[in-house]
Amino acid sequence: MADKKWLPRWFFQLASPRWCYQITGRLLPWFLLATLILLAGGAVWSLLFAPADYQQGNSFRIIYLHVPSAILAQSAYMLMAVAGAIGLIWKMKMADMVLKSAAPIGASMAVLALATGAIWGKPTWGSWWVWDARLTSMLILLFLYLGIMALNSAIENESTAAQASAVLALVGVVNIPIIKYSVEWWNTLHQPATFKLTEKPAMPPDMWLPLLVMVIGFYCFFAVSLMQRLRNEIIWRERRASWVRELLNKQ
């Protein structure tokens, strides 16, 4: 096991199921409120007040769902890979729980990204699906999510399932840069990235600002979903602990 002396104290607090259950309970209402405000405000802004695209008209508005879901699908997988590495190196069961809890959420985001991309592709490319590098790599990401979920369901031993899921998450993380840079490495139909940290957005502010609000809202939604699933997983795995029995008796 790796040396733990250099790690900060909060790192080990995160490894405590009881502490994580308590802190997520305090954070959940705030993230839920932020999710409702950001997604409701972003949806109204993007659908009713953002101008139509001069080429695509109103059909471009699907990017307000497509882009956030695609970004979140990749971010969730990277979180799983980090959790998998922590679980393998430091043997922290909370990391295993995070990986398992994040997988269904990330998979749903990948499905939403692929579905909205297909809806956008039909009027734009004339086809629901093309074997474009970006689309194909996103489909592979969905299969990786499904593979991790299948491992957790098929392997009864929680420790073995966690190790197998962590290995697959770490191996599959190589697909993330392929998704990101596929439009630059190969000649693809998919348009370049909408947001780049090093460049000014190509869209006018009244189009990319509501998109930014939606992206942040999706991240808050992910946080809410992950914390809720994580709390359920903690209760299930720690059901024999005295603090869980006391909590359930109070309820």
Rank of each mutant, 00 (worst) to 15 (best):
N58R: 14
L114T: 04
M227P: 09
A202T: 06
L39G: 04
W120I: 11
A162L: 08
R229L: 10
F143N: 02
P177M: 07
W208R: 06
M1L: 11
L32T: 11
A118C: 10
S101P: 08
G121I: 10
I37R: 12
V111S: 09
D206T: 13
D96A: 15
L144N: 01
E156N: 09
A103K: 05
L79E: 02
I148Q: 06
R229A: 11
Q74F: 00
G25E: 08
L14W: 15
N249F: 14
A110G: 06
I178H: 03
R239K: 15
K196T: 10
S59A: 12
R9Q: 13
L230D: 09
V111A: 10
G87K: 05
A15M: 11
K4R: 15
M92Y: 11
P192Y: 07
L135C: 05
A103T: 11
E233W: 00
A73I: 01
R239D: 13
L139W: 02
G87M: 08
Y219L: 15
A164M: 10
L99N: 14
L197G: 15
V244M: 15
M80Y: 01
D3K: 07
P205F: 06
T124I: 14
A50Q: 09
G57P: 04
W90Q: 10
P177W: 01
P210V: 05
A81R: 00
V82K: 03
K4P: 04
A169G: 07
M109G: 06
R26M: 08
G25H: 09
V174H: 00
M1W: 03
I178A: 01
M214W: 11
Y77R: 05
R245I: 13
L32R: 12
N152T: 02
F195Y: 09
M214L: 12
L139A: 14
L88T: 06
I62K: 12
F195C: 12
A85C: 12
L135W: 05
A40C: 14
P68G: 13
E184M: 04
T198Y: 04
R229C: 03
A52R: 15
R240E: 15
G84C: 09
V67M: 06
W243K: 10
L47K: 13
W6L: 06
K91D: 14
W90A: 07
A241D: 12
W19I: 09
M214I: 06
P8K: 07
A103Q: 07
L170G: 00
P177R: 03
M80S: 08
R237T: 12
L47G: 07
W6M: 03
G126N: 14
V130N: 13
A70D: 02
T35C: 15
Q22D: 14
D132S: 08
A85R: 02
W185C: 03
V244A: 14
W10R: 02
P210A: 03
S137F: 10
S75K: 01
L72R: 01
S59Q: 13
A223Y: 00
M214D: 12
I86D: 01
A107T: 02
